[in-house]
Amino acid sequence: MTTRLDLDGATWTRISPKYKWPEMGSYALSGLVVAALSAFTWFSGQWWSYALTAAILVVTILVVAFVPRRVRAIGYQLREDDLLVRHGILFLRFVAVPYGRMQLIDVNRGPIVRALGLSDLKFVTAAASSAVTIPGVPAAEAEKLRDRLVELAESRRAGL
C-alpha cells in the first residue's frame, strides 16, 4: 500500500474523532437489524442459517472496528484556489472543488451528531456528481468554515 495517493507537504485538517461514535453506532445498529432479520431463517433448522447470522455479525464487527480508521482518513484542506476533500482507506477518493464553483453549502445536524457538538457540511456545485460532504466538523468550526467558503465563493464566482 505504499503507492496510495497522497499529497506531500500537505496538512490535512482532520475531522473530529468524536464522529466515530455516531458512525459506529449506525453501522452496529444496521448490522444488528440485518442479523435479527436473518435470525428468522433459524426456523428452517438448516445449519447455514446460523452461519449466515454469524457471518453478518462478523462483518458488522469488522466494519465497526474499521470506523475509527475511516474517520481518521477523512480530511480536507483549504488550498489557494480550491477545497480538497479526501475520503476512504480502501477506496480512496479525492475531490477538488474550486471555490468559485460552489453553488451552495449545507450545514446539517442530526440529533446524535448535534449531541456531540458536530455538524455535517455539504457542498453543491452545478454538477450533481461532484457533491462533496465533510461530516463531523465541530459545530463552531463548521459555521466558520461555511462563512469562509461562502466568502471565497463569492469573491471568485464564475457564472454558470
Binding site: 503507492t3 495517493l5 477506496f91 479525492f94 472543488v97 474550486p98 464553483r101 456545485t125 452545478a126 454538477a127
Partner: peptide
C-alpha cells in the same frame, strides 16, 4: 466544476486510479 481522483483496491498497487472530471 470539480475534478476527482479515485483509487480502488485493485489499483492500489499499480497507481492508475480512474479519474472523473465533473461538469454541470
Amino acid at each position: 466544476q470539480s475534478v476527482g481522483v479515485r483509487q480502488g483496491p485493485s489499483c492500489g498497487d499499480c497507481g492508475w486510479p480512474p479519474r472523473a472530471a465533473h461538469r454541470p
